[in-house]
Design a protein around this nucleic acid. Structure first.
Lengths: 269, 269
DNA sequence: CCGCTGAGTTGCGTTGTCCGCAACGCATTG
DNA sequence: CAATGCGTTGCGGACAACGCAACTCAGCGG
């Protein structure tokens, strides 16, 4: 089959530089990522994406299908992600106390404010979105769950970084790429911003990641007092102006505090 | 740990009888299922569960870890499901119009009624829970998302079966096991129950799956008018008595209808 | 203090498994 | 009706994955 463009992927390794000792499994999991990205693909497309023969891709797909991680749309047709993923994700979040404790609080906050509420944790150099409760407003952003977002241009990121030691901070922030005019790109300015976050107890990000997008975030603390997650509300800048923020931010801070309490923070043993 | 019950799995095949042509991938995916079931496991436990050598299990885990589908708790420690699953699940539900359209409606209904709201579809011989919005009441059931539940003992199942042809119905219901005194186990009685569901436009299930659990469900229809999913509210029987149901069921039927409309049902093109 | 146990991790050689090939069935299309 | 494209399947060679055994490291009890 004609010209497979070589090297579409790092060739035999996981998405990052980590080692992936079992080739076929690595390929199978890459298929899942391809499908997550493209939504729906044919066997031939997937084979091309992996740089393998059609039959190989087919067998990998059949194995994934046996575990319901993929399914085909019409008995003999294209493939897409299957419901097995939902079960795995359910088991994943069941493990994370944060999400299960935070979910009802988030829902309430989303209802109170009408804006989108997110829970994030830090994962190396990114903010990782664990859960999202969409606001009631018609205009709202897409689902960010599972996405990785830069730390220095988001309110969640600022909160997650706010109490790190200098060395940890350096590791978590190798660089500060610019996204908009208002992105903080100077390390000195960012350090001052973090001090402000510590002082206020919450963080803001207005048009820093994307023009027209405003977010505010507050820390969620473990029983030990460490910041283990961040809760944010976000929406279009025109709707979340200063006046509106003055109303909503205290609610969000209170909600984050409530979750921290549920996790055992500030509880006398 | 000690004493592996023999034959935990059909040995080299997927959970069902389907063929899984790629052994290593099949094993890797089985690891995910083991972790989903047990929450957290050691390499040795996983190796025992698979019936393979420790090193094999380790390499499979390393590959899964490269894709963030598993992670270890303490750099050198036990393994558990990783955040990559959340991303895959996000991509899976993004694909399912039903969930994204239904979620805001469900949240509203959960807030209005204070009870748990679920969205399910049929998957062969089970009802599959796609999404859940917990009610505001303190007493509420656990998260069912990704679980598979019998069709004949649940309100959702009755709705999903209610407009099937006789042959499809036979395929979807090989048998009718009993769960409680009130479970319908006669095929004739069940057929009559389905007729009643069609007449009323919704289904009830009181103590049929589990004593003390009551649920009511209504159909969600595609643009073609087919029943593609079911929406339910459920709660403890003592709270959902006849009087209460008389209040809440119409709300639920209306909510399901709203979702059907969003999906294009009854819309003039 | 030190050896012992049990955990996760890592070279190495062999073999069994997975891959690429090519042929097939089945739609859809000209 | 031939032609093309898809997803699917038998087959044999080769390489990748497996099992083995040795290693590192923590915890623990002697």
């Amino acid at each position: 089959m004609s010209a497979v463009e070589e090297g579409e992927l790092p060739a035999g390794n996981g998405p990052n530089g980590a080692t992936a000792p079992v080739q076929s499994v690595d390929r199978a999991l890459t298929i899942l990522e391809l499908l997550a990205h493209d939504g729906e693909s044919s066997v031939t497309e997937i084979a091309a994406g992996l740089g393998v023969h059609k039959s190989t891709a087919f067998r990998l797909l059949a194995t994934l299908e046996a575990h319901r991680l993929v399914e085909q749309v019409n008995d003999r047709g294209r493939y897409r992600l299957g419901v097995g993923n939902l079960r795995l994700a359910g088991a994943t979040t069941a493990r994370l106390d944060v999400v299960s404790e935070a979910r009802p609080v988030c829902r309430q906050l989303a209802a109170d404010t009408g804006e989108t509420v997110n829970i994030t944790v830090r994962s190396d150099t990114s903010a990782l979105y664990l859960d999202q409760q969409a606001g009631s407003s018609a205009l709202q952003s897409h689902n960010w769950v599972g996405q990785r977002i830069p730390l220095h241009a988001t309110s969640n990121g600022k909160v997650l970084l706010s109490e790190l030691s200098e060395t940890d901070l350096a590791k978590a922030l190798p660089d500060l790429p610019r996204f908009t005019d208002r992105t903080i790109t100077s390390r000195r300015a960012f350090t001052e911003e973090l001090a402000e976050v510590r002082r206020l107890g919450y963080a803001l990000a207005v048009d820093e990641l994307e023009v027209g997008l405003t977010a505010a975030a507050a820390p969620i603390r473990s029983a030990h007092g460490d910041i283990i997650a961040s809760m944010s509300i976000s929406g279009p800048t025109f709707r979340l102006d200063d006046e509106r923020l003055a109303d909503e931010v205290p609610k969000m801070v209170a909600a984050a505090l409530e979750v921290s309490h549920r996790l055992g923070w500030g509880r006398r043993s």
